[in-house]
Amino acid sequence: MHSFSITLQYIFTGIAVGSIYAMVALGFNIIYNCTGIINFAQGEFVMLGGMFMITLTTTWKLPSLVAFPIAVALVVLVGVGFERIAIHPLKSPSVLVLIMITIAGSILIKGVAMFAWGKEPCYLPHFSSETPINFLGATILPQNLWILGCLAAVVIVLAWFFNRTLVGKAMRACAHNRDAARLVGINVKQMVTLSFALSAAIGAVAGIVITPIILMDYQRGAMLALKGFGAAILGGLGSGPGAVVAGLLIGVLESLGAGYISSHYKDAIALVVLLGVLFIRPAGLLGSAEIQRLKKF
């Protein structure tokens, strides 16, 4: 194989995985913007998305088109339920307490998932054919195109939601200035619930589209969450475009690193890049240094 096509191949693979990281990072950012916390249960939303989809299509024999929205809705239900039970009732919790709660939530969801689906990785058929498409000597799986399409859809919907709808603007208002948001009558707690719903939905979409490629088991969410978290930080915590750019970047670097250096160091490469960038630009690629100073962490 021509070396150009090999590189191209790595880049295609990287973009597909990177799209997942980008979606996970977007999920982190939405909750971070609204509450100032990192939701460590984000990876579990991804895992649950895949798992629900598997159950719905293989056990219940639902067509993918029907199962997809149901799986997303179920994960949203879990996300909102988690927020309502564990976070909503707290009066004025500190950031640290909230983060601990999300870690506990993550462990709990993982445990329940292990009982429900067992420890073995579960398989989900590709959405469309598994025949790779040839492109300049490299091949693309149709599923990778689905992943890219889902990322594009998520980005478009989010951009529309945050820039065009009043509720979306209200969420941004909360992120920017909580007291001022309350003064115009925005119920911040409702916005927090909504942010969990949105994040869960995005996580679920990511989980559903990636499952046919990587398989899914109860603890697969953690690694995806870690990479997604890296992408969120690299892009600048809270920045939507940053999350997408950084997610894709980490995916591509990881894939190139695995191909040209060693696949054993795959995970390390992405994190080394992350550290390197943060040494030079602590606010992240697209984060603003001014906002960085106002953040709690």
């Binding site: 941004r172 001022a180 003064l183």
Partner: peptide, 12 residues
């Protein structure tokens, strides 16, 4: 309330 220091949603 028009709060002290305006408290606008600056990026909007």
């Amino acid at each position: 309330l028009v709060p002290e220091g305006r408290q606008l949603f600056a990026p909007m």
